[in-house]
């Protein structure tokens, strides 16, 4: 695909939707319905400046730390549990149990345990975002190819080298699928962790706007969240293309034949 075409695909639908939105909201007097140009203006005045440093950046920082920990811990624990049979049998039912608990209900608990601070908010993000990566990694390790495994064994590739050159790359497709889910869960939990007992952050600010009937500002906050999600997706795509280029190449070839 040519770059021009790619840009057209990327911006095409959003532009159409904004035009449609503009047309439908034209002349509307409903206080709760935002209009495109006003919203863009509000977006600028509300979020660029002091708020950006006091609310947006700290939120992003907590999100980043939470996600990095969730992904790192998920991979390490997943490799460990996946490659130790007794550990896997022992832990698997419990992991499913913990995964089934909706993370927002942990917020009050973590508040009591950790207190109302950044650590608590990061902990909330980790507690929800770790599961897709962890469980996918466990599943992936279990399903590594038996012939490749035999190749490793016959060449004496064991221990850390086995993880580094064989297991980790083999499981990367599953890990990335887990990471994709973790990103959106992380974003949701970032907002939720700030809605309870907090005095700053994106989630807090949006709730604050809503309580004060600052409706355009509230909408603009939602747009900021959407943009963050988009940013995450783009970063993900960039990384995935680099890490899994072999996987996509392999898939393309097996689909062709």
């Amino acid at each position: 695909m040519s770059p021009l075409k790619r840009v057209a695909y990327f911006f095409g639908l959003p532009i159409v939707l904004i035009v449609l939105w503009w047309a439908l909201s034209f002349g509307s007097t409903n206080f709760f319905v935002p209009k495109p140009f006003e919203l863009a203006q509000t977006l600028w005045t509300t979020w660029i400046g002091e708020r950006f440093f006091e609310d947006v950046l700290p939120s992003l920082g907590r999100l980043a730390v939470g996600l990095l920990f969730a992904i790192g811990l998920g991979i390490v624990l997943g490799l460990l549990i996946g490659s130790t049979r007794w550990l896997r049998n022992l832990l698997e039912p419990m992991l499913e149990f913990f995964r089934a608990i909706p993370p927002p209900v942990l917020v009050p608990l973590l508040m009591l345990l950790i207190g109302v601070n950044d650590s608590m908010k990061v902990a909330v993000i980790i507690s929800g975002a770790i599961w897709p990566v962890l469980l996918n990694t466990v599943e992936g390790v279990r399903a590594v190819d038996s012939v490749l495994n035999d190749s490793c064994r016959s060449y004496g590739i064991r221990g850390f080298a086995r993880i580094r050159y064989f297991v980790l790359p083999a499981v990367t497709p599953q890990i990335m699928a887990g990471v994709r889910q973790s990103l959106s869960i992380g974003l949701i939990l970032m907002v939720i962790s700030e809605m309870f007992a907090s005095s700053s952050g994106l989630g807090f600010t949006i709730v604050q706007f809503q309580r004060n009937f600052a409706i355009p500002e509230m909408w603009s906050g939602i747009v900021v969240l959407g943009l963050i999600g988009l940013g995450l997706a783009l970063i993900f795509q960039f990384v995935e293309r680099r890490v899994l280029h072999w996987y996509h190449g392999l898939k393309e070839i097996t689909h062709d034949s």
């Binding site: 190819d145 012939v147 490749l148 035999d150 190749s151 790359p169 083999a170 072999w246």
Partner: peptide, 11 residues
């Protein structure tokens, strides 16, 4: 091995 397609590391 017999299964050459599965004995090399694709990455």
């Amino acid at each position: 091995f017999q299964e050459y397609g599965r004995s090399l590391f694709p990455w």
